Simulated assay, not measured.
Amino acid sequence: MSSHQTAKTEGVGATNARGALLKQERALQTRQTVLAAAAEMFAEHGYPAVTVMHVAERAEMTKGAVYFHFANKEALAQAVVEEFYRRLPVIVAPALGKKGLDPLRAVAEVMNRTALAFRDDVVIQAGARLQIERSYIGAELPPPYTAFQAMIEELLTRAEVEGALQCRVSPEGYARVLVSAFFGAQHISWVQCDRNDIEDRVREIVEAVLPDRA
């Protein structure tokens, strides 16, 4: 093969590779658009009331485009819940990464950051609602909030080792109380006032339950 032919063949290969990459990127963007639309619909209307057609209309796509990425409504719900749990560690990472922040203050900041996400992030809102409606979803979902509770327990264990946590229950029990209070508060805030007061409610939990962090 001549050098000219070789260069031409390599050029075709490069063009094909770029085309495949662009196609991949478009498919990923389409999937994210569908996922965002599903989250909005689940957050607003709840799992039982939402259909694949509703999601397609919100995403401004055909049902076929939705089905290309998700086999059914259950798969959409699973994907939203998975994204919910993927986002939680990202939301609290800045609090955990702060240098010089003692464990109890880290717990307070984790709770506050999560509260703001529940107020502002529709995927977080949808994930929380789908956890409540999990009995309607014919697909397996992760056990609720186990990783989040483990993270709080780890911080409280550090606080206990440092002598900052003096309580009649273990760090594990303390974490269960805090997590239950938090997710109960966000639910009541959602029902009563669309989570507009969630930051205040969570601050009250932190001030009432955590020892003085001054």
Results as ranks from 00 to 15, higher is better:
S3I: 13
Q5V: 15
T9R: 15
E10P: 14
G11M: 04
N16T: 11
A20C: 14
K23I: 11
K23W: 02
R26E: 14
L28I: 15
R31N: 02
A37Y: 01
G46F: 05
Y47W: 03
Y47K: 02
M53T: 14
R58C: 10
A59M: 04
T62G: 05
Y67G: 07
Y67A: 02
H69S: 14
A71R: 12
A75H: 09
Q78H: 06
Q78M: 15
E82L: 11
R86F: 04
V92K: 11
P94Y: 14
A95G: 00
V110K: 07
D120C: 02
D121Y: 05
R129S: 05
E133Y: 06
Y136D: 10
I137S: 10
I137K: 02
I137R: 00
G138N: 13
A139H: 05
A139Y: 05
L141Q: 01
P144D: 04
M151Q: 07
E153P: 09
R158A: 04
A159C: 03
A164W: 12
R168E: 15
R168M: 10
R168K: 05
L178C: 04
G184D: 13
A185F: 03
I188V: 13
I188C: 12
S189I: 04
V191D: 01
C193G: 05
C193K: 13
D194L: 15
R195S: 15
R201M: 14
R203D: 14
V206N: 01
E207A: 07
E207D: 07
A208L: 03
V209N: 09
